[in-house]
Design a protein around this nucleic acid. Structure first.
Lengths: 68, 68
DNA sequence: TCTGTATGTAAAGTAGACTTTACGTAAAGC
DNA sequence: GCTTTACGTAAAGTCTACTTTACATACAGA
């Protein structure tokens, strides 16, 4: 699962910590998602999309290789 | 997190087992999601949406009360 | 040089998504 | 009555999303 979290965050000029606060998650979660260490839950994905005022599909791109 | 999984499944005239096979998950997962026992992972949500040829937002509706 | 801001790694713990197995029930058809 | 199909519950196990804490690095500015 690829994502454009970092691009969107930069676009809004937010630090990882600011974004974490807005999303009510830890900064570690932001780092891990940006670095592709894991894919967020559906709920967090919804929150991320609405924070950037876009659709989930605009931020997250599922891979062929994507496991369930 | 509300969802319209059952509605879409009925619309396509699929049993829970058929849908589970298409999505490559267990029938238990389908039951649990339909019954609202848990919300699927982002990857599974993507698969569900593409199976019904709609967007994630068409199937899943985040609640106000939604925890992360 | 010291301080603050931003980013990153590592490790251990908790909660929940998902699996497998097994069993229960109700309806439909022979 | 028996079998098949569809739906549901329960319980125990695995994996991973997410947390907290602590430490490291690099850069900017006074």
């Amino acid at each position: 699962m690829e994502n454009k979290l970092k691009e969107f965050r930069k676009k809004f000029h937010w630090s990882q910590e600011e974004l974490a606060n807005k999303l009510e998650v830890s900064r570690q979660s932001i780092i891990s998602i940006e670095k592709g260490k894991y894919t967020p839950s559906l709920l967090l994905a919804f929150k991320i999309a609405s924070t950037f005022d876009v659709k989930i599909e605009d931020v997250f791109i599922p891979n062929n290789e994507g496991r369930i």
